[in-house]
Amino acid sequence: MTTLILLFIVGIILLAAEVIVPGAVLGTLGALAMLAGCVIAFWQHGPMGGGVAVAVALFLVGLMLAIEFLILPRTRWGRRFFLHKSIDSRSQPPVADAAAITRRTGETLTTLAPTGYVLVEGRRYEATSRSGLIEKGTPVAVIGTETFQLVVEKITGDNPPPAASSTRPPVTPGLPADNDLNKPVDLLTAPVYLPPVPPAPPSSKH
């Protein structure tokens, strides 16, 4: 009987502490203590005593939940423990076309140390620096991309922006640039040479 009463007292104290310090840890321990008390009540006092213990435990747990989630949030003291305002924020989406934005130039909107924000072609991007600390308003060039960031470096006299890649085919040495061999070929409109089909051999009649 002493153990049963002690477990219920511990459970009540933990449930009361859960109301004061929300977090579900103390409340769970209190419920487990009462559950152990109910088991002992069934073992020592039979179904009648166990039923009374279960009813008391359910009443106390329900009272704790009502106080914590229905009554406490409406009190001035309880509002300190509950978040009533939503956080409105969003992460930057992945860079849509990494190949198109690489080699573009822009300027830093914030200091990159080494991460911050840059402005490239009128759009704001999160970026990381590959050339150390970059001050705000410094010209930068995009040298690559990561999942949610641009990789940039500072543009200086010793480090000019990378040149855009050329799509023109290489020139054949020894031929003028306007020669047909140095012009790009459109596979959809280029003439296709088909070898002549040999005539079928004459059939012999018997």
Rank of each mutant, 00 (worst) to 15 (best):
S204F: 01
S131V: 14
G116V: 10
L29H: 02
P184N: 12
T110A: 11
P94M: 13
R124E: 05
P201R: 15
S89V: 07
P162L: 08
V19K: 00
R104D: 12
T105N: 11
P173N: 01
L63W: 09
V21Q: 01
A200S: 14
A98T: 11
G122F: 04
T189V: 08
N179E: 02
P191H: 03
P160Q: 09
I13A: 15
I134V: 12
Y125M: 05
P169R: 06
S89M: 04
F82C: 06
S166E: 08
K154F: 07
G144H: 14
G78M: 05
M34L: 15
D178E: 12
Q149G: 00
L60R: 00
D88T: 06
L14S: 06
I5N: 05
P173R: 04
V52T: 04
A41D: 02
A41R: 02
G62Q: 04
V151C: 02
L4D: 11
V19D: 00
F8S: 00
R123G: 06
R76N: 13
G37T: 08
T75D: 12
R124W: 02
D158A: 11
M1N: 07
H84I: 05
M1R: 11
G50W: 01
P195D: 12
G174V: 00
T156C: 14
L4T: 09
C38K: 00
I5S: 08
T145G: 05
T145V: 10
L150W: 05
A163G: 14
H206L: 04
M64R: 08
S89K: 12
T115K: 07
N182F: 01
G62M: 05
D158I: 07
S204I: 13
E126P: 06
E18L: 02
A66N: 07
G50M: 03
L35A: 15
D158C: 05
A36G: 13
L83R: 15
A57Y: 02
V21A: 12
D186P: 04
T108F: 12
R76S: 14
A177M: 02
H45C: 01
G30M: 02
G51T: 04
R103W: 07
G137R: 13
I12R: 01
S89D: 05
S165F: 10
I5G: 08
I12T: 07
P201E: 14
A190I: 01
V21H: 10
V120N: 08
Y125N: 07
T110S: 15
T128I: 04
E135L: 12
L32D: 07
T75P: 03
L83G: 06
L112E: 09
T172N: 13
F82V: 13
A164R: 13
M48H: 04
A100H: 05
G122M: 07
K154W: 10
T102K: 14
A177S: 03
L58K: 09
S166V: 12
V151F: 00
L83Q: 13
A66G: 10
R103L: 09
A41V: 01
G49Q: 04
V120K: 00
L6M: 08
V118H: 09
R76D: 14
G51Q: 03
A16E: 08
A141K: 01
T172W: 00
I5R: 03
D88I: 02
I101M: 06
P198Q: 06
A24K: 01
P161F: 06
E18N: 03
